[in-house]
Amino acid sequence: MKDSPALRLAVTGAPGSGKTAVCTALSLATGLSFATISEQLAKPVADRRLAATVDAPMRGFEQRVDSEARLGTGFVSDGSVLHEWAVAETLRSTRRLGHWMRRPQDLPYRVFEQRYLVAHAGIVVRRARTTYDGFVHLRSDGEAATAAAESEFRTVIDRLLLDTLHETSVPYLVTGGPLEEIVTRVAGMFELPQVIPVTDAVNAALRAA
């Protein structure tokens, strides 16, 4: 693929795994466009019932499809179309009884929420299959989590994303470690061109973080 700028690469991982830094450095080092979305635009516009698991994944999906379509045939995607769905499904699956006790008005909608996310999963997986040429999944090292609940969330979303990547049948690399090593490894695996030295790209990405 080194002679083709049309590579469509997606970087996935749990929140806080370093996706944005990796994508920024890869974009600078290889010349690929950087596909991302505004977190504010992807958030629900109001605190509606089940907004975080129904409204948010759809808004995020729409934003990502539009963002990636505007970049044409070559880009590196920060999170991919899987991200907002995976966050929503993890929120749903890790809820404790206390949540429903605090929000009993949501109880009648539990079945709808689950069925909605199953249907949405089918949509995002099909889109991923047809959009991306490869994935890079950043391992969750667990060190960034400061509470048990956060650690569990990161572990669950990490496993969900890995299982989903396997389901897409799109080639993927699972990696971790220092940023410069990750960028070098990814560029080598996908035989990407080098526009500027990786060290310079990484330093610029870290300054921008």
Rank of each mutant, 00 (worst) to 15 (best):
P15K: 15
G18V: 07
A147M: 15
T73I: 03
A42I: 02
F135V: 06
S93M: 00
A51T: 04
K43M: 06
F75Q: 01
E89T: 05
F112Q: 02
V81D: 02
A42H: 03
T12I: 03
A86E: 10
L41S: 10
A205Q: 04
L71F: 04
S27E: 09
F112Y: 05
T131V: 11
V111N: 09
D66E: 13
L9N: 13
R207L: 15
A209T: 11
L138H: 10
M1L: 07
C23K: 06
V183S: 06
A145Y: 14
V186I: 12
V54E: 00
G176Y: 03
R115Y: 03
Y116K: 00
T94N: 11
A205F: 08
A205N: 06
V111G: 10
A29D: 13
P15T: 15
R154H: 09
L97F: 03
M1N: 07
G79L: 13
A205L: 04
A147T: 15
K43Y: 01
R96D: 05
S38T: 01
V81K: 00
G60E: 10
G31C: 12
N203K: 12
V87C: 10
F75M: 03
W100K: 01
A128C: 10
T90W: 07
A35F: 03
V22M: 05
V76Q: 07
G79F: 11
G72E: 12
Y109T: 10
L71G: 09
H120T: 01
S169E: 06
T146M: 13
D66Q: 13
T53Y: 07
L161F: 03
A187N: 11
S93I: 00
S93Q: 04
I196L: 15
F135W: 12
T36P: 08
L71I: 01
T53A: 08
S169D: 04
D66S: 13
A119G: 05
G176R: 07
D133Q: 08
T130S: 12
T199A: 12
A10G: 01
A56Y: 10
R207K: 15
T24L: 13
D163E: 14
V76R: 05
R129Y: 14
F135Q: 06
K19W: 02
L97S: 04
E39Q: 12
T199H: 13
R49L: 14
T20N: 11
S67Q: 09
A208W: 00
G176A: 12
